[in-house]
Write a protein that binds this DNA or RNA. Structure first.
Lengths: 181, 181
DNA sequence: ACAGCCATGTAACTTGTTACATGATTTT
DNA sequence: AAAATCATGTAACAAGTTACATGGCTGT
């Protein structure tokens, strides 16, 4: 749902050919989210089919350039205006499923994930542009949040924190311990 | 990439039929990540084709039950062991693209997204199980992180913070302002 | 000459989404 | 009796991945 509109948004800033579109996208996002070239051409086909872009010309270098249409610009404006839903956190699902699996060790999962996050953390390469900085920092903020959440999970699983929320009815008896789940 | 293995992980805890698999998945994840029934059946077909699950029996109620195979269990174990990559943050991409779009107002985008996050925040429903609590808290932590990142973006765009990292070469002249980008 | 990148695709496949068809059972 | 839910699917499509074919141009 988003590559289509991402590419269209780039087209909104001027005509492009396929290879250039991909380069532009990767430059702006700083290379996180690598884009397959083949998919760029497939997406351009669909954009043209749907009347959001047109094959404008083959320029002097033989490049097949695409331009955005007014309808395309409108779609981009809509997309930008609408808020974005949070993505699905695969690790959270994984942990939720692992907790009830007899063979799986939730604490080991947490430790592995924490190690992976710590290793990926030091993105030393300087950002060349404000866009790249924003995208990179988004990853950093998200990674830090997941690290905090991992701590939180460990505490919950170990029973160090009470299980329920304050808004919930108080639980009777001992707090739930991981080994009982 | 994960529905297949999520369902397989549930099968690893006992045989299930399609509808039940979906209910189980949604119960554990607390309903965030709604799952289409049709896809469950499509996934079961593929799991059987790939030798990771087998149509074990049609029980007394006429339900078509599936069981996991040893190879299926091994796949689940592998999946759980491997760390999970962070997902792509659509809003970050959107903002990065909007910054250079003449028609788009980055500050307005940020404001809209912040409002959407604040509105979605108070998930008052009590979690029925530890799994549900973990998944829900993951969303909460991620949302809080995005809110902090939004503040950070506003500051960066307004030029209130210096643009470069400390590790980068110092920039000459005035800090970059949003209107110049 | 040869290696490597630029550039445009095609093909095969997997995954995910939406919508619909069909019939049984349960609830109101 | 009607409506809702349970249950098993099918169809069509969008989106993502990998691999390959082809040709031009560039640098060594």
């Amino acid at each position: 749902m988003s590559i289509r509109l991402s590419l269209l948004a780039i087209l909104d800033q001027g005509e492009c050919y396929g290879y250039q579109l991909r380069a532009e996208f990767e430059r702006r996002t700083g290379g996180s989210w690598p884009l397959n070239v083949g998919q760029v051409y497939a997406t351009l086909d669909r954009l043209e089919r749907d009347g959001l872009a047109t094959k404008s010309a083959v320029d002097g270098n033989g490049h097949v350039n695409y331009s955005i249409t007014p309808r395309g610009s409108a779609e981009v404006a809509d997309w930008l205006t609408a808020p974005s839903e949070p993505g699905r956190d695969e690790f959270a699902i994984k942990l939720a499923l692992a907790i009830t699996l007899p063979g799986a060790d939730a604490r080991a999962l947490i430790a592995t994930q924490r190690a992976a996050l710590r290793e990926a953390a030091p993105v030393a390469a300087p950002a060349a542009s404000l866009e790249q900085r924003l995208v990179r920092d988004a990853r950093t903020f998200a990674a830090e949040a997941q690290l905090r959440w991992l701590d939180h999970c460990e505490a919950l699983i170990a029973g160090a924190e009470p299980y329920g929320l304050e808004s919930e009815a108080p639980r009777r008896g001992r707090p739930v311990r991981a080994t009982e789940i």
